[in-house]
Design a protein around this nucleic acid. Sequence first.
DNA 1: TTACCGGATGTAGCAGTGCTATATGAATCA
DNA 2: TGATTCATATAGCACTGCTACATCCGGTAA
Lengths: 232, 232
Amino acid sequence: MTGTATSDTRVRLIDAAADLIAAAPGEDFSLRAVCDAVGVKMPTLYHFFGSKQGLIDAVVERGFDLYLGEKAAMESSGDPIQDIRAGWDAHVAFGLANPGFYTLMYGKVRPGYSPAAQSRPSEILLALTTRAADQGRLVVAPEQAAAHVLVTNVGVTLRQIVLAAADPELSAAVREGTIAAITGTGAQPRNPLAAAVEIAAAHPDVLGRAETQLLVEWLTKLGEQSPAAPTA
Amino acid sequence: MTGTATSDTRVRLIDAAADLIAAAPGEDFSLRAVCDAVGVKMPTLYHFFGSKQGLIDAVVERGFDLYLGEKAAMESSGDPIQDIRAGWDAHVAFGLANPGFYTLMYGKVRPGYSPAAQSRPSEILLALTTRAADQGRLVVAPEQAAAHVLVTNVGVTLRQIVLAAADPELSAAVREGTIAAITGTGAQPRNPLAAAVEIAAAHPDVLGRAETQLLVEWLTKLGEQSPAAPTA
DNA sequence: TTACCGGATGTAGCAGTGCTATATGAATCA
DNA sequence: TGATTCATATAGCACTGCTACATCCGGTAA
């Protein structure tokens, strides 16, 4: 508790574990290897963390500290949507730079449990979407918008980690697609016939399936043969 | 090779492993537990699969077989975008129904490696985006569109698995956001349905008088009852 | 028939794992 | 000083993935 030299061993154990995890992200690691790296025996580790999961939790906590530290260093642009963009990119960058930490923080897929510390950045995101909603710039509830952003942001980050290759183009595309979805600001205005096709296809229950299919067929034919509506 | 009763043990081992994995998705499982369930000793398992990873690979392969089996049972609507929607929902449904299989298929985050069988459904998706692109309905390359859909689809599925709760609203929101992003059909400054009505009415010769009239009727109904029809 | 051979399975045991009961040194405090 | 508490070590348990070796059993060839 006092943070004197006694807790130094604890910190060194966490660091050693983080190093081992970073050396093989997603893989398992040995507690004995951690202890050897620190020059200590297993009961010492168990004295501090109680279990392997306890050590992992401590590493995860440290990961979120690191992540939030970077996040805190960013200054707000004043525009919540712009801040969401910056937060998105920071999230992806952190994941690619620290795949060991990131896979523990967001990459463990065990039904029913996710690290409690996930709520910390999630609340920051929710604050941003709430501000955006207050400014009337969202077409969905701030909670839904935050969930939407989180899901796609994590998804695109994990994908880049498993592919072992940064894909800024994909990240940007998904980011803008997500922002467009929650703000309702689509891309450029485009062929209204094509847009009508999408609307009809998105709601096949309104007209019925057969009618919708025929409608789509007609609209497509209209788009091909009508000089007023060139297909882009 | 002959597929006689000899290979029955192999299949039963895979089934037993799949059951154990399904019982604790994302968790590790013991080879001895698999052997006990089948009533066989470890060397038998190693005779067939060579290693634990070999068994896991076989289970993953079986998972993709199952998934593609369900996918093959779906009939195409004729509209590639609509097929992408159906494929999206099928993907999420499979993941939620088979979290054990799914976490092995798409939930393992190890940099540099992902199951080779992932390419099978990916190619189906790419075929759909390619068809959509041929119809001039995409604003990005088919490969990028497929990557975008895959990333968000997997992301939203994994999220629902870790939350241990289906969230059809979130899935639909991300799905439509993704489709809007690749088709370029976001919210329009002007109602595209109304614009489509004008175009159709201006070219009654393309479809014929009766069809055009019916088309206009449908588009109007769609505009009245579709909640996604942009109003602002 | 007899001998053989290869695939399938069992016995026994390796090294390594997470974890723990117990003990010892050192520091703190009454 | 004596007592208590924290940090660390020794030793070992139960379990893991994995494997060298031996055994059975069915088909094939002489």
